[in-house]
């Protein structure tokens, strides 16, 4: 049970703190309301599981956002003023970059599980760099489209093209920030270990990768 894992942690901590003076020996249930022995607050350490759950639910929520846009896209496509946008060749190159970054991320995590910290660091930074390269590539692709005279306001198809790629880029930017955060973070003092943080960041990154493939397929097949 998720709930049952938290309390043993806490009991452990309490027992290891001599200054808490016998708090660990108290009966678990305080009939008249507890709190009276809390002259100093005991450290509260909820299970790191909440980060996994939070990320999973966050992914569902983001997916719902893109699904709403996708259903609007499919409905709107039927109208007469739809002028399809040709996907710039550069975006296919960007796609390859993003897929490779997912692979390097997994390689980095594999190195971490083997305890090879410096190899992990290098691969992690390669992943981050690939992510940035993808973003730069997307911006360049937009500039190419603008050069061809296709703007956000040109027609419904271009509006959807820009909002899909733009919203994805914004979310991916958050992913790059997360990768940098994990790279820079000092995990000696943290509530979660480096491998847990890396794993949670990797969920988001792979989701962004898969989402991009879905959006690309939608834009390509649905134009």
């Amino acid at each position: 049970m998720p709930g049952s894992t938290t309390t043993p942690d806490i009991e452990l901590i309490v027992e290891k703190k001599p200054s808490d003076g016998g708090v660990g020996n108290l009966p678990p249930v305080d009939q008249d309301g507890g709190g009276d022995d809390g002259k100093r607050p005991r450290r509260w350490k909820p299970s790191p599981k909440r980060y996994y759950t939070g990320m999973a639910l966050g992914i569902v929520s983001i997916l719902m956002f893109f699904m709403a846009l996708a259903s609007a896209f499919l409905v709107r496509r039927g109208s007469g003023d739809w002028i399809p946008v040709h996907i710039p060749t550069l975006m296919w190159f960007n796609t390859a970059v993003l897929v490779i970054s997912s692979a390097t991320l997994e390689m980095a995590r594999h190195r971490l599980s083997q305890g090879r910290l410096s190899a992990y660091r290098n691969l992690w930074l390669v992943t981050t760099a690939l992510g940035m390269l993808f973003l730069v590539g997307q911006i360049t692709a937009w500039r190419q489209l603008v050069g061809q005279g296709i703007y956000l306001a040109s027609n419904p198809a271009s509006s959807f093209f820009y909002i899909f790629t733009g919203a994805h880029a914004l979310h991916l930017f958050g992913g790059v920030a997360a990768l940098l955060f994990v790279a820079k973070r000092n995990f000696d003092q943290a509530q979660v270990s480096r491998s847990v943080a890396s794993e949670i960041a990797s969920y988001y990154w792979h989701f962004m990768d898969a989402l991009w493939l879905f959006l690309l397929a939608l834009l390509y097949l649905g134009k």
Binding site: V14, P28, D30, G35, D37, R42
Partner: peptide, 9 residues
């Protein structure tokens, strides 16, 4: 601090 030092069971 809600339940004080001992979380309820």
């Amino acid at each position: 601090n809600n339940f004080g030092s001992a979380l309820p069971i």
